[in-house]
Amino acid sequence: MSVAMQSGTPALLDDVVEAVASWQQEGAPVQVHPGDLGWNWGFGSEALAREVRLWRRGGTILAAGMVDAKDGLIRMAIAPSVDSDEAFARQLLADLADPGRGVLPADGGVVEARFGAAFRDLLHRSGWVADEPWTPLRRELTDPVEDCGLRIEVLDADHVDERILQDRVAVGRASFPNSTFSSQRWRAMAASSAYRRARCLVAYDEDGAAVAATTVWSAGPGRPGLIEPLGAHPDHRGRGHGRAITLAAVAALQQMGSSSATVCTPSSNVAGVAAYISAGFEKLSAVTDFRRLA
């Protein structure tokens, strides 16, 4: 049965989210998560749909990708059922390698594929080389989570406090250079199907200042949850707030039924890796993207 690539449409996004959620498996490599789709949904369903590519066989979605045209990158999620499927891997690579398919540029391109043994092996054998290293981290959610020591306020799709929303936006913009996060983007994100299993957390210190924030994404009970993004306000750093908001995120995912909390950060982010480890995360082996030489 043939494999067909399809560009995303707003009407398809809910199906893509559910497919990607179903592929999240405990103990498997960290790959594109419903939370990655949900975060990008903040730019609008039309914009997200333009980024999405999916591959079907017999009507079933077996792979999905998010294209970043500016960086010549596609981030992949692959169904466990085709992990070792060489025929599927060959068609996937043929679509990515052909610039006429409109996925990657002719003069290079980067593939983030952390799952899919046959596909990763084929990339290696086809001359794609290792790119920037990333460090995945994981914390099991079987044991109780220690109190984070800060007051935590929650924003979910059904409970929106305008003051807390403004604090969420302010901390997000302060935490990440060049951030364009806004209340409008949050509302677009919160209206998405991905956010039905997500929530934003804002941490406040003893003086009532918003000092850190994060968004946590469940893929459903018994599946790994994702922390994306997480940041501490630069005016309040060095006081353990990064660790505190991480613990709050872990506790929220545990409450939502996730089997573990996962995150993946550039290996060069030494301070970030250390903060997650201090919050009980296990540092896993570094992974790299695949770059095609121009």
Results as ranks from 00 to 15, higher is better:
D107A: 14
W128F: 05
S81R: 09
S267P: 07
R50P: 01
R125F: 03
H236A: 14
R223S: 07
V17D: 13
L226F: 10
K70I: 12
Q255W: 05
Q254A: 08
S45F: 05
S126K: 05
V270M: 09
S81A: 15
P10K: 03
R101V: 01
P80E: 08
L123C: 15
V111D: 01
Q91H: 15
E26T: 10
M76K: 00
M256A: 09
L104H: 01
A213Q: 11
L13F: 04
L12N: 08
D15H: 12
L141Q: 00
A157D: 08
S259G: 10
L230G: 03
T262E: 14
S193V: 15
L293F: 04
G27F: 02
R163L: 07
D68P: 00
A252M: 00
R56V: 08
A198I: 06
R187I: 05
S2R: 14
G100Q: 10
L96A: 07
L93D: 05
E146N: 13
I78M: 09
V263S: 11
S259N: 05
S182K: 05
F43A: 15
R173G: 04
V171A: 07
T265D: 05
F281Y: 09
Y276F: 14
A89R: 06
E18H: 11
L253F: 05
D15Q: 15
T262M: 14
G231A: 04
D161F: 00
A271H: 13
N269S: 10
M76E: 04
T142L: 14
T142Q: 12
R185L: 09
S126P: 00
A4D: 11
L92W: 15
V263T: 12
